[in-house]
């Protein structure tokens, strides 16, 4: 296996139908990005099949957040191709909107809208982006708030909820747009320890329902439990990628071993 994702290619090659591009939810090919002169992403290649769960880990500053933020164009890549759900990301604003409608994202700091109630946070995008009638949007919002187990908080404001509850609202807010792909950017890093589990449980149940997920996280228990592949990034490049089993029990690259040695005590 090469670190650029060839493992997937060969694994997928077993079924001929899977070779068409439409089977991939996300494809990154030769992606580069610079912040000024600083080279943050270096030749990143990653293909994510529909329904696949990818966990991305790596030391801070390794480019993992930048990479997933490129997938919904919160960051712009400068070289290479990114195709999301069959749409290639370019400067075309319509394509960016198209991709963002299909891709949900949860942030480390939730980024809920503090001036709106929990219910309004969830109905805002369906109403304004999907042009859904308010009543239908509220019905769907309540469905997902029930799913993340906080329907009773619907009329409160984000500031009145705990961190774990806010992150679950953020997940529900994304789900209300009925996304095909979910991106998680360190969703549990800003939480108090006792609230990590409730968020991870929500993510696990989402994974079990077949959602395509890319998660930047240091929760290795979560990676073992749900990930199809673990991607290890360092210094802007994908260093190693493998099934969680192999990744944890048999890391091959020196940098992976060093990193795992530091986070698994």
């Amino acid at each position: 296996m090469k670190p650029d994702g060839t493992l997937t290619m060969s694994a997928v090659a077993a079924s001929p139908a899977a070779r068409t591009g439409s089977d991939y939810a996300v494809e990154l090919a030769g992606v580069h990005k610079w912040y000024g002169a600083f080279h943050v992403l270096r030749d990143v290649n990653l293909r994510v099949r529909k329904g696949e769960k990818i966990v991305i880990c790596g030391p801070s500053g390794s480019g993992k957040s930048t990479m997933i933020r490129c997938i919904n164009r919160l960051e712009e890549h400068q070289k290479g191709n990114i195709v999301v759900n069959g749409t290639e990301l370019t400067n075309d604003l319509r394509r960016i909107d198209e991709v963002r409608r299909e891709v949900g994202m949860c942030f480390q700091h939730f980024n809920l809208f503090p001036h709106l109630t929990i219910l309004e946070n969830c109905t805002l995008a369906p109403i304004w982006v999907r042009k859904m009638p308010k009543k239908d949007a509220e019905e769907i919002a309540m469905k997902y708030l029930t799913r993340v187990r906080i329907p009773e908080q619907a009329n409160k404001y984000p500031g009145q909820l705990s961190g774990g509850q806010q992150q679950r609202v953020a997940i529900a807010r994304s789900l209300c747009m009925n996304p095909k792909i979910m991106l998680f950017d360190e969703p549990t890093s800003a939480l108090d320890p006792e609230m990590v589990k409730e968020v991870l449980d929500t993510m696990v149940s989402l994974a079990n329902e077949g959602m395509t997920m890319l998660c930047v996280t240091h929760e290795m228990g979560f990676a073992r439990q749900v990930a199809d592949r673990v991607v290890f990034m360092d210094a802007g490049e994908i260093v190693e990628m493998n099934t969680p089993d192999q990744f944890f029990s048999n890391p091959r690259h020196e940098r992976t071993r060093l990193f795992l040695g530091q986070i698994l005590h």
Partner: peptide, 28 residues
């Protein structure tokens, strides 16, 4: 910045982001 990113991530455009997210908070 997270407010702009939160709005972008759910697919709101520039004017929607300004009118629904940024201005109500900034003016208050």
């Amino acid at each position: 910045k997270g407010q702009y990113e939160g709005a972008a991530s759910v697919g709101l455009g520039y004017w929607q982001t300004m009118r629904l997210i940024i201005l109500p908070q900034a003016l208050a």
